[in-house]
Design a binder for these strands. Structure first.
Length: 259
DNA sequence: ATGCCTCCCCGAGGGAGA
């Protein structure tokens, strides 16, 4: 089963590029972030015509997550538990059943800039709630993954110019510590289980020719429970589509699981 | 670089992104 995460930066602007990538990469499941659309405005028919079931958790203008799946999606849950007052659409879960059941969690973790400040406080609080949900996934001892735009640069090797991010909410020590605290529950960073070393990125800013200079950062991740990591066959970043027409500023990251 | 683009809102130009 091929499972991808992709921050598309607006489903209305990105539908053609997303459809082209789906036809080429043939993923079974895609976890989408930043659909920037309410549920009713998501162009679901275009994806259903390609054989995908569509589940969305959108809001007006900002944020918004969705799941596309060639297999039926069961037990869909919208919203990260832990704060009834949080109205931002950043979390969706569902189960797909291959040879075994796999729980999928798609997430768009808050950016947090500027830090310090209320937006950074919200990011850290959201990561605390994520830690709680992640602990439940570990305790279940079943195949599950959390994937999406984490807005976390885990290590210096995950940025072309780490010094440029020293004061940024994506790379502050407290951010990276909160990310490691989740990993230490027992998750595997799928990409780092397969590929080591610098120079592998999933985001390049639209500004200042960042793509042409390969001035990127790796912030889109797939974290696997131990029972899911056992099934990991491959993980890759589809970087080349960043150079296509009207690209997102992020590219897909995908795993193949033996499930 | 408190911002070099691009998205969203809509029908101007501001908020947000990272």
């Amino acid at each position: 089963m091929k499972i991808a995460t992709f921050n598309i930066n607006g489903i209305k602007a990105r539908a053609p590029a997303l459809l082209a990538w789906l036809r080429d990469a043939q993923p079974d499941v895609v976890l989408l972030q930043e659909i920037k659309s309410v549920d009713e405005a998501f162009p679901r028919q275009e994806f259903e015509d390609l054989g995908y079931a569509v589940e969305t958790h959108g809001q007006k203008s900002f944020n918004g997550v969705a799941i596309l799946s060639k297999l039926p999606l069961e037990d869909v849950v919208r919203g990260l538990p832990g704060d009834a007052d949080d109205t931002q659409a950043r979390w969706i879960e569902a189960t797909v059943v291959g040879r075994r059941a796999l729980r999928l969690c798609g997430l768009y973790l808050p950016n947090g800039n500027p830090a310090p400040g209320p937006k950074y406080d919200y990011k850290l609080a959201w990561m605390e709630r994520l830690h709680a949900r992640a602990g439940d996934l570990i305790a279940a001892e079943e195949p599950a993954l959390m994937a999406g735009d984490f807005n976390v640069i885990p290590q210096a090797e995950d940025a072309r110019r780490p010094e440029a991010w020293a004061q940024d909410a994506l790379y502050l020590p407290q951010t990276r510590a909160a990310f490691r605290r989740i990993l230490h529950l027992g998750f595997t960073d799928a990409f780092r289980a397969r590929v080591q070393g610098p120079g592998h990125y999933s985001f390049w800013d639209y500004q200042a020719g960042a793509w042409n200079r390969n001035d990127g950062i790796r912030i889109d991740h797939l974290l696997l429970t131990p029972q899911c990591a056992d099934l990991l066959v491959d993980c890759r970043i589809d970087a080349e589509i960043r150079g296509h027409e009207k690209p997102s500023d992020h590219v897909p990251v995908r795993v193949e699981l033996d499930i």
